[in-house]
């Protein structure tokens, strides 16, 4: 039909782009994951060997899985909770509230490379700002990013610096909660905390859910900050899946192996997202 053709003409840029930059690479990546391929030679079929090595013979892989899960399961819920509480705090009417909102939002738009460079300096063990402040109260702070028992905690704390974006989303959501609900609750004698738990929280669950899912998907791809700040170290304490994949692909040029890693990552992300959607009906409230 003519109408069909016109429609396809309009969406053709995306259709072509999807085929060339998403669909074909997607399929190619499955195939590659069954090969041994270093850029110099052409790919040779090795069946499941890459997966076998990954699962049974590569401790770094398990370290990366563990670290990624820890990061995703701690940093993401922590960020969601912190952003939610911050949004509640910023939703009150006091003078200068717009200034506060701006302050909490600003870090969100600071380029990751810039903030990483700044953190590197602020967290310098000897002459950094943070340990300087801790010395004021007589504490000699740890080496943060350079101490394997602190590096993960440090990265998780740094992730909170950028929650301003989620705060904005929650603030917008809070504006959409009908005032009549609060009125009714107030008449029934509910106090501030009760109103927050019984009205605000349930009404906000769709937004919280969205943030949780996107947060988890992003956490699995967590890369730039770790690459700049720790490069996976010390002693692989911050080796994340995306980092390990990058090292395998671009340092060792082990593209088949890295593709297998990508696929394991994909399956993990997809199943966790699917799992979250399964719980969706139980706690996400829609009008």
């Amino acid at each position: 039909m003519r109408r069909d053709r016109l429609g396809y003409l309009f969406i053709s840029p995306w259709l072509i782009g999807f085929a060339v930059f998403t669909a074909l690479p997607f399929i190619a990546s499955v195939c590659l994951s069954f090969t041994h391929y270093t850029v110099a030679s052409s790919p040779t079929w090795v069946g499941l060997a890459n997966y076998q090595t990954l699962l049974f013979d590569d401790p770094s892989f398990w370290t990366a899985i563990w670290n990624t899960l820890v990061y995703a399961l701690v940093a993401v819920p922590l960020g969601v909770a912190a952003a939610f509480v911050l949004a509640l705090l910023l939703n009150v009417e006091v003078r200068g509230i717009a200034v506060y909102r701006t302050i909490f939002f600003l870090p969100h738009i600071v380029p990751v490379v810039a903030s990483s460079v700044v953190f590197m300096w602020v967290l310098n063990p000897q002459i950094g700002l943070v340990n300087g402040i801790l010395r004021l109260v007589g504490i000699e702070g740890p080496a943060w990013l350079q101490d394997p028992s602190w590096s993960m905690t440090t990265l998780i704390m740094l992730s909170l610096w950028g929650i301003g974006g989620s705060v904005v989303i929650y603030l917008a959501g809070l504006k959409d909660v009908p005032a009549s609900l609060y009125e009714a609750a107030r008449i029934d004698g509910a106090n501030v905390v009760q109103r927050a738990i019984h009205i605000t929280m349930p009404m906000m669950t769709p937004v919280i859910f969205f943030n949780l899912v996107m947060g988890i998907i992003h956490a699995f791809q967590y890369f730039t900050q770790a690459y700049i700040l720790t490069s996976g170290g010390p002693q692989e304490s911050t080796l994340f899946l995306a980092l390990y994949l990058f090292f395998r692909a671009w340092r060792y040029l082990d593209l088949g192996y890295a593709s297998a890693l990508a696929w394991i990552m994909f399956v993990l992300v997809a199943s966790i997202t699917y799992g979250l959607f399964k719980t969706h009906k139980r706690w996400v409230h829609y009008e």
């Binding site: 690479p25 997607f26 190619a28 990546s29 791809q221 890295a258 593709s259 990508a262 990552m265």
Partner: peptide, 11 residues
């Protein structure tokens, strides 16, 4: 929602 890593290498 597709992680960029999946298509990065073939791209």
């Amino acid at each position: 929602a597709l992680p960029a890593q999946v298509t990065m290498i073939p791209q």
